[in-house]
Design a protein around this nucleic acid. Structure first.
Lengths: 328, 328
DNA sequence: TGGCAGTCTGAAACCGATTGCAGAGCGTTG
DNA sequence: CAACGCTCTGCAATCGGTTTCAGACTGCCA
């Protein structure tokens, strides 16, 4: 059916080994032979069978990607970055979505572990012990989370939160609210920590409004608490929450930004599409994906690598319409 | 390293063949033996090596998914549906994104063809000839497009457009605009055809405003033309375009829906999040994904299947805030 | 008791690539 | 001229499963 390495060998008048070498170790085979083999292979439309190669090399050429929810607009850009970088290295990407079900993550890792060379885990809710088990099953890189010595790429939450607070303080806000995401989320904890540090440093008050789902509806649910908190500005866990919040506030007759400033995080596409457009802390999502692949490939090339690889990506505050000077 | 079928065989005191059979053809092996083998396999944590299996069966257990742009909020739900259904059938999904580059699609099909059992092609811009070539390279199912005898799942554009027009006519609109997507898009043509039929039937006027990119910016670019067209209602190619249009109209001081009604298509998540929320023609995206997988698995099970499989999915109009009675 | 059908199991070939090892061919050097 | 080394190539083993085929065993019937 399909053209195999032996077909190429026969047509080129050499052995299968030579064909194999001409393709994957070009320098150890005679130039003329190599040329001929390559030409014949190309002419016959030869495509190496990955399964066969994987069988002997133990490499699949696949990497797995596990994320909580594809529908969350934060992820597509990350996925794109991962794709692009993986394809350049001739890897394919398996995408799996857990539907925000934290308990499914470890199971997915288990079932994926043998079918891929490595796994990229996007902001998992896994507990540290589970994470350790997962890291034992396959080479793993974390995105948006750090844990022990597992390689990871995450945004610089501390600096990001500082930028946000500085911006709000510059606008005259003195009492700032934080609508947190799920308590189990690493980002929630880090962002809270960053906000505390930054607001203490700036001498302003930080009010924790509570934990909410990292969704538009979560933002809607948070509106009540935000109003009660008596703040003049609020930082939301992410853009979706911020947008839900803005929407619910408008429904209650509270204008953003004239009565309340709102800041999101992530700079998802739609944050620039609504009214008002959202002031948000942008993070390089596609780059994060690319970096994650880089780390994983490093890890694969040097499995003994006891060195921890870690990347912190810079953030950038995008000032748009949802923040304004505090009204006294 | 990993536990193989031979390890299981040794531990269970049987041959590798028996283990293989116990796992994949349970009924032809003695019950007691089967039990023992399965218990041992489970105890040892045996996981079949897919590459090895694929080598002999010729099946990879993978399906490929090619789509123009993951960042387009239409796709994530489709992908989720595909995932879910594929996983239930014990298939993994490769996702590949062409970045709206139509010329890359065929290349992707080529490079993916040998690594998957079949491919799901989401709304490709490929020309019919290319599509035929693609279909020759691997079993293929189309989403959001029909072409020849290639199995496909698409929405019922004719009925959908009828619902949209009926809704607008019911509100008193007599002159309706259509902001089309790319001319090369199958959906553009079908939707236009559906709109023509429906408006003729209802005795109202249809004005084609032009072709625009299927994005938020495309909607912004269309605003000028919409105003010039002198219509009281406009149907956009999709929700993103509709939202861009609403945004640009607002910037020009035109209120939606009191001065102009706008209808989107797709019912993407964010269509319910803006102000006004968008009246849109909802299509069952996740179900479309599941159906596509069903079709593909059918096709794989019965490759000779000369019968064309085709699914038309029903649409549902979601009336929200962006449409209102026509002001005389 | 012998023959036969039927059930279950094991040995071995095979899928398509990679790779260790050995040997052919050639040039160089003492 | 012999010995040696180097470059290049082919043979054959191998990865981990599946599947064909033949044979062992059982039970049943004549």
């Amino acid at each position: 059916m399909a053209v195999t390495i032996r077909d190429v060998a026969k047509a080129a008048g050499v052995s299968a080994s030579t064909v194999s070498r001409a393709l994957s170790m070009p320098d150890i085979v005679d130039a003329a032979t190599r040329e001929r083999v390559l030409r014949v292979a190309d002419h016959l439309g030869y495509r190496p069978n990955r399964a066969a190669r994987g069988l002997i090399t133990g490499r699949t050429g696949n990497i797995g990607l596990i994320l909580p929810d594809l529908a969350n607009p934060f992820f597509p850009s990350v996925v794109k970055g991962i794709q692009r970088q993986a394809h350049e290295a001739d890897y394919q990407v398996f995408v799996a979505d857990t539907d925000e079900d934290a308990s499914a993550e470890l199971g997915l890792v288990r079932s994926l572990a043998k079918q891929v060379d490595g796994i990229i885990l996007c902001s998992p809710r896994m507990k540290p012990a589970e994470l350790r088990e997962a890291a034992g099953l396959a080479p793993i890189v974390l995105v948006n989370r750090k844990a022990g010595t597992i390689p990871s790429v995450a945004m610089d939450n501390a600096d990001g939160m500082r930028q946000v607070v500085d911006h709000l303080v510059g606008l005259g806000h003195r009492r700032i609210g934080f609508v947190a995401g799920p308590r189990s989320s690493w980002s929630t904890r880090e962002r809270l920590r960053g906000l505390r540090a930054a607001s203490t440093r700036a001498g302003v008050e930080l009010v924790e409004v509570g934990n909410f789902a990292p969704t538009f509806d979560g933002g809607i649910a948070a509106a009540e608490g935000v109003l009660i908190a008596g703040v003049t500005a609020v930082v939301a866990y992410n853009d979706l929450v911020a947008m839900g919040l803005v929407s619910a506030l408008r429904d209650r007759g509270v204008d953003v930004p004239s009565q309340l400033s709102v800041v999101g995080i992530d700079n998802i596409q739609m944050s620039a599409m609504g009214h008002p457009t959202l002031t948000t802390l942008g993070i390089p999502k596609e780059k994060a994906g690319r970096r994650a692949v880089d780390l994983l490939l490093h890890l694969l090339a040097d499995p003994s690598g006891t060195a921890t690889y870690e990347r912190e990506l810079p953030t950038e505050l995008l000032v748009r319409q949802s923040t304004a000077p505090a009204r006294p």
